[in-house]
Design a protein around this nucleic acid. Structure first.
Lengths: 350, 350
DNA sequence: CTGAAAGCGCTAACAG
DNA sequence: CTGTTAGCGCTTTCAG
């Protein structure tokens, strides 16, 4: 004996089903749904009862086709390895969900090609806008072209010459705080370990580092580059110290790398911070948990995500009006991976 | 003088624009686009040229309305704090993108209410299916109802009595490996620190822990519960040791908590692993970077994500056919947070 | 106050 | 081999 599966080919109810049951026209059903014109209370009631009985819910695909709004926003990130990007996603999702928007998520993996594919996929699916932290080597003209077709807000990373919406962090200030801190506790020989310099953030951070040093009439003890990963931080540190670079402190371009540096120093038997100071950038959750806990520059990614989401929401009402460039401030968090430079007497306070 | 912005209210081209330019009917345009019937090569060429000239791309919203396929999959996660969930998302996104699917991402924050809202939002937007790691206290009947409306695959977390698609990890085996390891190096007093026991995973892990102990005719030195966070691991450890529980090893229900335990022990001046052994669960990236590096049970989240994605893809073709329950195997990774129990002589090998 | 009807952009019969 | 046409499920005039 076969059980009767699939009770009825139970098609989802549509407006006309509701209309028929409520004995009104489809137009009226639509109007009570969207309250787009006055409907007699009695009629409303009839319609609402029909809706309830049929468990009717409007088909948003059909609505989107005609309203040209999907209530969906695309969010494009260059990776998920960096916990900071996850914070961005988290904040964006939370803010948008509260306003009835859903988020289409894409990972460009830092490839401009994938990024382009995603922007098209988003656009073709009719997203109302996109928030993106661009890939390295992103094509500015491509980006501008897409921005012509839908609201686009840049977050965390910037494309040169971009005058649209964006929310960025003042890296220069953050890096200055880090360098000032190091110099203040007596460091003069500071090395910089960078990520992939094809990524704008990497170039900006290095430039900011060098500028901050110059203010103290100092020059980098060394500068090297790799990629933004634990392994790269690890091997760059090994390499640097292997070739005998004289440095009393290492500045890593981000926390993930800094954790790698810490690993390397552990392996080399160099104590942090007594033997060498280390500072990171971003303040990911695990920076605090490292041992020693990592001194780093806190970047308010959640705040940036929230602001980016609000910006895109605004833009959806003020179609193409005046754009906004928002900048948020980073903040140095001194923990236990930095200390007075070996052999340096405590300098007089400024 | 005002610059001429907005060159033309440049409406996006549609099939009829292409048809007009190529001097064919809209039907033909559609058919060359979808190769759904034979079209003379010359005609194809004309159409393709028109498409290129107009930079035409089909409106997927319109396509979706008629084809009842959006090429979009919903992915629902209970949080992003646990890096393992991020691995899941990463793998799902990667697998799906390669097949031309986009992913709508939702964070239920472990709230069944939010979960329900998201499932409806997904369904109303016409997703072709959803992959979900359910929230705690999820409503099985609600889930089953939604599964009636669209393909649903459960990942990582399971709803009781669910006979649909799912991909799970064999927690019992993983926990047994961890406990066996601890017992083998002489531990007899092992405490278990759990997360929120309203979460199924928490209950399963605790049950698995107790079962594994029983095989050695042992009972937990203590069991406590909190939430799956660093802070909770920290405070539970403090609490446990504060009330003088005799334990030579602590088993944390996941790595994030285990990191908190490590912090607490550091604060108490208890050396790990000499004074106390600690083991985690999941093998997040930062488990390796903790100091001491964390002994933990590796759970192949990326693999689970990939399998879940493949499963949903299969289900899209085999509409409602035989379901699959996939189980993946965890693997204990012994690092430096576990060692012989204090005072225990190395036991003879079994 | 409400109904009828014309689409949104596309696909898929149905005719030739 | 290709054109015409009837919708997908909804919104929104335009008439009453």
């Amino acid at each position: 004996m076969r059980r009767a599966r699939t009770p009825v080919p139970t098609r989802r109810p549509t407006v006309s089903d509701v209309a028929r049951l409520a004995k009104v026209s489809v137009g009226t059903v639509s109007h009570v749904l969207t309250r787009s014109r006055y409907v007699r209370p009695r009629t409303i009631l009839r319609v609402e009862r029909a809706i309830k009985r049929l468990q009717y819910r409007p088909n948003r695909v059909a609505q989107s086709l005609i309203r040209r709004r999907t209530h969906t926003i695309g969010m494009l990130l260059p990776n998920l390895i960096n916990p900071s990007h996850v914070d961005l996603l988290h904040a964006v999702e939370e803010t948008l969900e509260a306003e009835g928007y859903a988020v289409l998520f894409g990972n460009s993996q830092n490839s401009p090609h994938r990024e382009g594919r995603y922007l098209e996929a988003f656009r073709d699916r009719g997203v109302d806008g996109v928030i993106t932290a661009i890939a390295m080597d992103a094509d500015p003209s491509e980006l501008r072209k897409m921005a012509g077709e839908m609201p686009l807000v840049m977050v965390n990373r910037q494309v040169p010459g971009w005058d649209g919406d964006c929310v960025l962090c003042d890296i220069a200030t953050g890096m200055r705080q880090a360098v000032d801190h190091l110099v203040e506790v007596g460091h003069r020989q500071i090395a910089f370990l960078n990520g992939d310099t094809r990524i704008q953030t990497a170039r900006f951070r290095q430039a900011a580092f060098e500028a901050a040093l110059r203010r103290h009439r100092l020059r980098p003890a060394a500068v090297s580059a790799g990629v933004f990963s634990v392994e790269s931080g690890y091997s760059q540190a090994l390499e640097l110290l292997g070739v005998g670079v004289q440095a009393t402190a290492i500045c890593a371009a981000n926390d993930v790398m800094a954790l790698g540096v810490l690993e390397a120093l552990k392996k080399l038997g160099i104590h942090v911070p007594e033997g060498l100071s280390v500072v990171g950038f971003n303040d990911i959750l695990y920076a605090r948990l490292a041992s020693p806990s990592l001194t780093t520059v806190h970047v308010p990614y959640s705040e940036m995500g929230t602001k980016a989401a609000r910006l895109i929401l605004e833009r959806l009402v003020t179609r193409g009006k005046s754009t906004q460039q928002v900048t948020v401030m980073p903040q140095l968090i001194v923990r236990h991976s930095t200390a007075q430079a070996p052999g340096a007497s405590r300098p007089a306070r400024l």
